[in-house]
């Protein structure tokens, strides 16, 4: 099977001040697959994820070495605004904008000039449908996004990311603040979205990683200890640490 590479990370090391948080990480992200990165908290997985859209850059003490290629192009030579237009992100805690539901989803298309009036509502509707939120909110698009429940807010954030039609969606523990039912909905949603988008998700839940991912990485103390197809990693991990993590003895 011919697998197209979207992201290629080569020997990436990163520091916050003197503290090295990523050690020589190399990996590839494949198109229209779900790649999950798991590991105990503080292992650097979130920092790794935020390297893909250069969201660490504005942190004063952050320093990075190594290369990341996005569709063959070095992201450190791209305009971060352009990069982020093509790479959406969903955060740990739902963080809708202080606007109406409609304006939240329309924000991205608007600032990037992607659609005029007519096209805009279609786009919003499409994105809300893709995020499985349309049925719940289509009558009250003018309502403030803060009035939604936590799970709905998180799906709104997914819709907001989807609305600019990015190539990749990054998710940073998107269900850690949600109850089990909302979590299940979002996991299901991610599987649906993977037919059209490349998805990278960071999670500390082994179950979630195993359930939804095609590729699975395990990080420990800044190193990418293990990376491969999910079935292979879960059944026959090469590294002892991975084994220990999967069986719940570290983490």
């Amino acid at each position: 099977m011919n697998k197209e590479i979207v992201y290629e990370m080569k020997n990436l090391s990163a520091w916050f001040g003197k503290n090295q948080v990523l050690k020589n990480v190399s990996l590839k992200i494949y198109r229209n697959k779900i790649t999950a990165i798991m590991g105990p908290s503080g292992c650097g997985k979130t920092t790794l994820l935020r390297c893909f859209n250069r969201l660490n850059d504005y942190t004063e003490s952050f320093r990075v070495e190594g290369d990341i290629f996005f569709n063959g192009q070095n992201i450190y030579q791209m305009d971060p605004v352009q990069l982020r237009r093509r790479v959406g992100m969903v955060f740990q805690r739902p963080n809708p904008f202080p606007m109406s539901i409609f304006d939240n989803v329309a924000y991205g298309p608007r600032i990037h000039g992607l659609a005029k009036k007519r096209g805009l509502s279609e786009r919003v509707e499409k994105a809300l449908k893709a995020a499985a939120l349309w049925d719940e909110v289509h009558g009250e698009l003018r309502k403030s996004a803060y009035k939604l429940s936590g799970g709905q807010q998180q799906r709104l954030c997914i819709a907001r990311a989807v609305a600019v039609e990015p190539e990749v969606i990054l998710l940073d523990e998107p269900t850690s603040a949600l109850d089990p039912i909302a979590t299940e909905r979002i996991e299901k949603l991610l599987e649906d979205l993977s037919s059209r988008y490349t998805i990278v998700i960071v999670t500390h839940s082994i179950g979630q990683a195993l359930r939804i991912s095609d590729y699975l990485g395990f990080m420990y103390k800044g190193e990418l200890v293990e990376f491969g197809e999910t079935s292979q990693v879960s059944e026959d991990p090469r590294h002892e640490l991975t084994q220990l993590f999967l069986t719940g003895r570290i983490g």
């Binding site: 982020r84 955060f91 202080p98 600032i111 990037h112 954030c157």
Partner: peptide, 28 residues
């Protein structure tokens, strides 16, 4: 204003000005 909001705006490709306007809106 929580940093989450700034990051949310930046992550969707907002530039500095657009991010600042979002923060202003949150603190209005």
């Amino acid at each position: 204003v929580s940093n989450d909001l700034r990051e949310a705006a930046m992550a969707i490709g907002a530039d500095k000005r657009e991010t600042v306007f979002m923060v202003i809106r949150a603190a209005k």
